[in-house]
């Protein structure tokens, strides 16, 4: 049996908003450790992995590992009906049923909404995600997640919004990270310098560079990842020319959301 409770729907609402526009289905793995979610986009360019440890929930009972594929668009629709302070209960029975029940209960007026979701196939996930060696990454950038979101918005507004294939080039050189994109009639570059931690100790931009690195990514993916900002104040971007880039948001003490994305390479 699986029975979970969260006294505030916000966390789960934010998780769904952070993944549902790019990923249509996800695999949810519940175990004694917590919830591990994985999803891959249809072009197989990006993968998202989420961990919410059991401690993230107000009540967590999972006496047997349970893996289920769920449609994220349907879930996001249901969660948009939930208020931030609704109490969420997630329940699944033994193997014979292939549905999971999400219940939203309003603490103020006692209204209860019940959604049953059927399991779906997930095309390729879950995958085993190794911890790639640190030495493989040429550069790591840590910055406030709101700043990263602002950068993505600026780049998107400059690039032709109708073009799904706008490319952003992220390059790291010494104590600077540059975001570059090309619009219809010009280019746009946003330069971020490493900030002095003394001035704003809570919102530093930190750049660790082993070697110069410059990689091209799809802007619409990056834009979508930036929605992780509702889950964490900081984002860490790890760049390597040999591995998928990682955009990581730590969720308080209870987990993380990591987006893996392949850079575009010259043909």
């Amino acid at each position: 049996i699986l029975e979970l409770r969260l006294v505030q729907a916000t966390l789960f609402k934010n998780v769904l908003e952070a993944i549902s526009d790019l990923f249509s289905k996800a695999n949810f793995d519940f175990s004694g450790t917590g919830l591990e979610l994985q999803a891959m986009d249809t072009s197989h360019v990006a993968l998202v992995a989420l961990l919410l440890r059991a401690e993230a929930f107000n009540h967590y009972l999972c006496d047997r590992d349970l893996s289920m594929g769920l449609n994220l668009a349907d879930m996001a629709k249901a969660f948009r009906c939930a208020n931030n302070d609704d109490i969420i209960t997630i329940k699944a029975e033994e193997d014979w049923s292939d549905t999971v029940t999400f219940t939203f209960e309003s603490p103020e007026d006692g209204e209860i909404s019940i959604f049953d979701f059927d399991f779906v196939g997930t095309n390729g996930v879950p995958l085993e995600i190794p911890e790639f060696p640190e030495s493989e990454y040429q550069a790591k950038v840590r910055m406030p997640s709101a700043k990263f979101m602002r950068i993505c918005k600026k780049l998107s507004s400059f690039g032709d919004s109708g073009d799904r294939d706008t490319v952003v080039i992220i390059s790291v050189d010494k104590e600077c990270v540059n975001f570059f994109t090309r619009g219809k009639t010009g280019t746009s570059t946003i330069v971020c310098r490493q900030t002095q931690t003394v001035d704003k100790p809570k919102e530093p931009t930190l750049i660790e560079m082993k070697e110069q690195v410059s990689l091209a990514f799809d802007l619409r993916y990056m834009n979508s990842f930036s929605k992780g900002s509702t889950l964490s104040d900081q984002v860490t971007i790890s760049l390597s020319s040999n591995l998928p880039a990682v955009f990581e948001y730590k969720i308080a003490e209870t987990g993380y959301i990591r987006y893996y994305m392949l850079p575009r390479i010259e043909e």
């Binding site: 360019v45 990006a46 879950p126 085993e128 998928p244 390479i265």
Partner: peptide, 14 residues
Amino acid sequence: GTKQGNIMSFFKKV
């Protein structure tokens, strides 16, 4: 032009 590989090649099937 540019192309992209398949991210699955970096991970193993569970």
